[in-house]
Design a protein around this nucleic acid. Structure first.
Lengths: 153, 153
DNA sequence: TATGAAAGTTTTAAATA
DNA sequence: TATTTAAAACTTTCATA
């Protein structure tokens, strides 16, 4: 499962992140190699799971997703059953774009993208009816200053 | 700049999000249309900026980015100059994957991905030396439960 | 919207360093 | 073992019906 990556691999990944629509020839040129070796490296990294989903990033605002909330959650429940139910709820809800379990005082943070504040409320009501949470704080985004999936390789 | 989208457009976007590597023929089949109309719709949506970057999502952990922090920032500065400098700093730093200006008590939230805690500290020191911030709280992610760029169209 | 054809791309296989 | 060459299958792109 673990693949050791060299400089060329990292350059390839960098190109794939930057523009997944480039041809192999172009990538090969950019990294100073040629088609087949690049193709073999890509396949290896794909098989190893280093390279994941190929996607187009869409403009959320233009598609009517005008509200984005960061939700801070504290819970008193720490049992396995509760946690399993909570995680399942998060994974099933498509509004939840990110969910992290945290160290410290706050237990979870979510990033939730919805059409409007009413849709957020519907999400919130559904969530707390499914699982018991102790304290929820919603931070409303006024402006997306930056949003990228790029890793600085 | 605004394009009205119909059901077929939304189905196409949905497919493009799900798998940007599919052929036009395949997308056409999935949305119940044929190559040319699908191609024309995609081009229109691309030109309108609804369809953005085509990318591969990479496995951050496998690539050694083992620490992810959500950073809550309060500032006493609300002048235009300060804000411009702050935004510039965020946009320039590749560790910052997300940055939002918030409504309410907390002014900004960042998502910061780094190799380790030391790299976070280096980021933090650099940031506060560049711009004055009143209060910073870092939330450390212990587990990425969910992470997606998909919008529920 | 459909057809089709030219140009370009991916993928595999064989040959070579 | 890794790279180059070669070639078949497939895809994109665009003109025309």
């Amino acid at each position: 499962m673990t693949v050791r990556l060299d400089d060329t691999d990292r350059k390839i990944l960098s190109q794939l992140q930057r523009d997944a629509g480039q041809s192999l020839d172009e990538i090969a040129r950019q990294v100073g190699s040629s088609k087949t070796p690049v193709w073999n490296r890509i396949r290896k990294m794909r098989d190893a799971g280093i390279i994941g989903q190929q996607t187009f990033l869409l403009d959320a605002e233009a598609l009517g997703f005008e509200a984005c909330f960061f939700v801070l959650i504290r819970t008193s429940e720490h049992e396995a059953d509760w946690q399993a139910a909570f995680l399942k709820a998060l994974k099933e809800r498509p509004e939840v774009q990110e969910a992290h379990r945290l160290a410290g005082d706050i237990d979870y943070i979510l990033k939730v993208r919805v059409k409007n504040a009413r849709a957020y409320d519907a999400f919130y009501q559904a969530l707390i009816s499914e699982v018991k949470v102790h304290n929820v704080t919603a931070l409303l985004s006024m402006e997306e200053i930056k949003s990228t999936t790029m890793l600085p390789l």
